[in-house]
Design a protein around this nucleic acid. Structure first.
Lengths: 343, 343
DNA sequence: TTCTTCACTCAAAGCGCTTTGAAATTCGAT
DNA sequence: ATCGAATTTCAAAGCGCTTTGAGTGAAGAA
């Protein structure tokens, strides 16, 4: 059933039917009722491609996933983020489309997105430091919003981000206050902006308390459980082991916990651990008493907020840059304690 | 730049240009070269909506995510699955689109997908027992493939699934052979087909060895870390505690491990644990020596296979039902050992 | 009664592409 | 030269929708 046949069935013109359906004022209430009812009865749904072709709108939001950087997609955090974002998008009638492309092609894809009019806007994930995609998208003129920020990009752009620097500064300060002096940092990949900011926070806290940092304690890699485990094992076995760990993700923290237990130590009394907690639905940090002391910020909520902002942006591209900073809370669990006295 | 202007610039008709671009034989090689080169130079990309409108193809694969059943989306397994599937899809030029809808609307959405010609095919996730979406999609005639199967659906449909019954039967048998008699089953949600099959495997193994099962040991819920923990805590504290746990997911198994350690027991020597391992990239079960003894099957690969099949199906709908069964391997790690002697 | 207005409704022109059916050109064969 | 077949190109008709600009009646004003 298409517009034409519906119009014929009703004995009306396509124009009138279209107008009635889309709520234009030029059609009488009686007619509108009749049309609506018929549309219902014949279960007519407009063809979205035709509609898009005519209106220039697609009601789709794009997300490009570079192929070789497999992390994005498989990262559990991504799932929760998408859940939040698609939730919000769907409320405005938008769907989400994922395109995987080889790394090199990424810029081409954005241009194509624009040329082919395949999406109305784009979400940019995992910004690196001085991310080149931002100037690119600005130049193309495709509405977009970044999940995170990109240090080194001077031009304005829209973003939603967690205050990574502050939250890691607070976490580090918390450990310092407990007497820890050797704090290991298990950070995300070096070139990622969020990792950069977290390291800043870590360094700032040390500087504030005039505590020297040790490069041997600062690491960055893909945040897997294995990585957390491997690194904790080697650090704990080192000459001058850390008394505390600051992790960039729950998953890595699980690995750290495993290493601590294997070493015959207790998490909390013997070795302290703080992790960033994205509040993943499948990996809750305890509902009553948190297992890990953590800087918590729901990535799902970030997704919702971001999607909401993007929709608004598409509706009215003239709004000033949307820039929303979320603060992470520091929740205290049983994984931290005073630094053990040196023997 | 659109077809029309490109054709004008070349002094050719739209037809010829379109044909040249789409590799039709009716155009001379020389002309084709000229057109190709011009398309490149003007960086012309066809508008996909217009193309879709004319051809009836969208190059999009849909996935519907019911809103209230939030699990699908946030389940870490989902991320890896999508990574695999979208990888394969992209190689054939397909993108993936997610639509979130309230539970009740799901059937309406499929009809709309079809009516609005918004996708060329659909992936069905998380089939329940006697899942009604399957007959619905069959009736609509929209090409689809199920990730999993649905017991109780008699009509033919396409699927890719892991042999859940067999893998859990083997795992259970493995525990029985080690002398375990009280094996707890931490299963997924009851109405899910995969959970049903796993329970079957568990029951079959018990029956084969004439070992009675205890309803108090069989549980099903959403597979979170918390659930694994909570349940293991209460089971370990019970009158007649299990000596082994069989978990449907790594995440839940992590919770079980935590509970075991909190109880002052050792995983392996004191309490055995086997889990199903979807081989998630962020939650590897140890690369050299597996932590958990596990039934392993890469959900990422399943995604690839499924996507590949769907593409094939769309290309040629006449192919007999595609039904692919994957076998999980049983990898032995350090989480299992002989049943401890009763004190 | 005639002229304006207003409220509705309509035919037709796009949107950018594919594809059909026909026309023009080339070329070897008669 | 002439013809037919093969090769190459084209104009135009959709695909299903929105939207413009015009048309039709009916109601109200003169």
């Amino acid at each position: 059933m298409n517009l034409k046949s519906l119009a014929e069935a009703l004995g009306l013109s396509q124009t009138t039917v279209s107008r009635a359906l889309n709520g234009y004022p030029e059609v009488s209430e009686a007619t509108r009722q009749r049309v609506m009812e018929a549309a219902q009865r014949y279960s007519y749904t407009p063809n979205s491609r035709a509609k898009g072709l005519a209106t220039g709108r697609t009601m789709m939001i794009g997300q490009v996933i570079p192929t070789t950087l497999k992390h994005e997609m498989v990262n559990p955090v991504f799932g929760d983020f998408v859940a939040g974002a698609s939730q919000a998008l769907s409320e405005h009638g938008y769907d989400m489309v994922f395109t995987r492309v080889p790394d090199i092609d990424e810029s081409r894809i954005y241009r194509e997105f624009n040329a082919r009019r395949v999406v109305d806007g784009v979400i940019l994930q995992g910004p690196a430091i001085s991310d080149t995609r931002i100037p690119l998208l600005n130049e193309i003129g495709l509405p977009f919003i970044v999940h995170g920020r990109s240090s080194g990009v001077s031009e304005p752009y829209n973003w939603v981000d967690v205050n990574n620097r502050r939250s890691f500064e607070r976490a580090t300060q918390f450990l310092i206050d407990l007497g820890h002096r050797r704090i290991a940092l298990l950070n995300g990949l070096d070139h990622m902006d969020f990792a950069f900011r977290r390291r800043q926070g870590y360094l700032d806290a040390h500087a504030d308390s005039a505590i020297p940092t040790d490069p041997a304690l600062m690491h960055s890699e893909e945040m897997t459980e294995e990585y957390g485990h491997r690194l904790a094992v080697s650090l704990l076995a080192s000459e001058d082991p850390p008394t505390a760990f600051l992790c960039a993700s729950m998953i890595a923290a699980l690995g750290v916990r495993r290493a601590i237990q294997e070493a015959g130590l207790r998490m909390g009394p013997d070795v302290s651990v703080i992790t960033h907690d994205d509040d993943l639905s499948y990996l809750k940090n305890g509902s009553d008493m948190p297992i890990f002391t953590a800087t918590r910020s729901s990535v799902r909520q970030a997704g919702e907020l971001l999607a909401e902002s993007l929709v608004q942006l598409i509706k009215d591209p003239s709004v000033v840059p949307i820039q929303k900073m979320l603060e992470a809370e520091l929740v205290v669990g049983s994984s931290t304690g005073p630094a053990p006295k040196r023997t």
